[in-house]
């Protein structure tokens, strides 16, 4: 028998290796995520959840929730930014986000008025951070104006900066920037879109 060593022949010979069942990779992936979390090598775990305001990306460090992102923010781009700003040790791993998914479910069902999740504010600094730390004090179903928030954070003239802090809130819904509206009562802009803000305020008013 004559043996030819063309690469094409070899790939035909080795073709049976090509078939890797998707189930095998899935199983190995889950095993990796579990081992990584156990050995503190999983810096950021993420998953998505469906919600009345679209699919939400949830990401958490070992310290707590670090990011909630709307669909329109492009989840792949958000994960890439997390890789660059915090750590690229990121895996899809629903386990760490199970409490967050459950609390969000309860919130959208109208039965939860306050989130009890550990938060990681690594993505926020300075004045923006103090604005975000104030927001959970606005009660469910209530709103404050940008000016009121500026006053509450001790910088009454920083109304515009409050707007920026809300617009760049890395933890929307959980840190309720949707409860901050314009002084004339109009909604003001929202990272998830005006419709999403309207929906959240309507949910809380019900």
């Amino acid at each position: 028998m004559t043996i030819h060593h063309h690469e094409a022949d070899v790939s035909e010979l080795l073709a049976p290796f090509d078939s890797v069942e998707p189930g095998a990779i899935q199983r190995l992936h889950d095993r990796l995520a579990a081992a990584a979390a156990e050995q503190h090598a999983l810096d950021i775990a993420y998953r998505t959840v469906d919600s009345p305001i679209g699919k939400l990306l949830l990401a958490a460090t070992e310290r707590g929730m670090v990011r909630v992102a709307f669909e329109k923010e492009d989840h792949d781009a958000v994960l890439q930014l997390l890789a660059e700003r915090l750590s690229p040790r990121i895996l899809f791993s629903p386990n760490r986000l199970a409490p967050a998914a459950r609390e969000l479910d309860e919130y959208f069902a109208g039965v939860r008025h306050r989130f009890e999740l550990p938060l990681d504010f690594s993505l926020s600094r300075g004045f923006r951070l103090s604005v975000l730390e104030h927001l959970p004090q606005i009660p469910y179903g209530h709103t404050e104006s940008y000016a009121q928030v500026a006053l509450a954070t001790g910088s009454p003239r920083a109304v515009r900066a409050v707007g920026t802090a809300c617009a760049t809130n890395p933890l929307p819904v959980i840190v309720p920037c949707h409860r901050v509206v314009k002084s004339d009562g109009s909604f003001g802009s929202y990272l998830g879109g005006t419709e999403a803000k309207r929906a959240l305020l309507a949910l809380e008013a019900a």
Binding site: V20, Y46, Q80, E84
Partner: peptide, 17 residues
């Protein structure tokens, strides 16, 4: 820039297996 490791697993997982 460096990708999230999840993409590394998805892209290269089958070859490494």
């Amino acid at each position: 820039p460096k990708k999230p490791f999840e993409l590394v697993v998805r892209e290269h997982g089958p070859t490494v297996l």
